[in-house]
């Protein structure tokens, strides 16, 4: 019985001791709280949870407003502008392509005209050359004919002159022969002398 009483007394003491410890812990806690509260003034306002609902509320409002502005106005406008621009660029590129094709066509036409003109010029030149050639040939032929005529004429005259010369030679020879005969003291008939000279001239040599 007595032992039991002692035991309960001891338990009571123990309980008192833990109470005291509790109290001390509480006090320490309070001190820590105080320190915390004091530090918050210069510490991190980011960790002041009392302002969280306020910040979160206004942040959500902000995000919703920005989202609405973007979805309703901003994004459709920008995407429309971008689409329009790419359309314009595509159109411009197509137009440029078209113009380039036209330019190439014009160039081809020019080249063709140039080639045509060149062949035409060559034709004309060839034709002209042929004409000139015929003219020249004609002129040469005419000149040849004239030359032939002239030379025939000349030959005739030469023959004439030759004949004339032969005759004169015969006459001179006859006269000289007659004189020689006379000088040698002979006398000869004119016919005999001339016959002798003629036969000498023709059959002589």
């Amino acid at each position: 019985m007595e032992h039991e009483e002692e035991a309960t007394e001891a338990a009571g003491h123990a309980a008192e001791a833990t109470d005291a410890a509790h109290g001390a812990a509480d006090a320490a806690h309070g001190a820590a709280d105080a320190a915390h509260g004091g530090a918050e003034a210069v510490g991190m306002p980011q960790l002041d949870f009392s302002t969280f609902p306020n910040q979160i509320f206004w942040l959500v409002v902000t995000l919703i407003l920005i989202y609405l502005v973007l979805v309703r106005i901003g994004l459709p406008r920008v995407s429309a502008v971008l689409a329009e621009r790419s359309g314009t660029i595509t159109n411009d590129l197509a137009a440029a392509e078209d113009l380039k094709r036209q330019a190439e066509e014009a160039e081809a036409a020019y080249e063709k005209a140039l080639a045509d003109a060149r062949t035409q010029a060559q034709d004309i030149a060839a034709k002209t050359r042929a004409e000139i050639q015929t003219d020249i040939d004609e002129a040469i032929a005419r000149a040849d004919a004239q030359i032939a005529e002239k030379s025939k004429e000349s030959e005739a005259r030469i023959a004439e002159i030759e004949a004339g010369a032969m005759q004169s030679v015969e006459e001179v020879a006859r006269d000289v022969a007659a004189e020689i005969v006379k000088a040698l003291g002979g006398s000869a008939k004119a016919d005999d002398v001339s016959g002798a000279v003629s036969s000498r001239l023709r059959g002589g040599a």
């Binding site: 009392s50 302002t51 609902p53 306020n54 910040q55 979160i56 509320f57 206004w58 942040l59």
Partner: peptide, 9 residues
């Protein structure tokens, strides 16, 4: 500072 109070935030 309540949740609805207009603040510098």
């Amino acid at each position: 500072i309540h949740w609805y109070t207009p603040t510098n935030v």
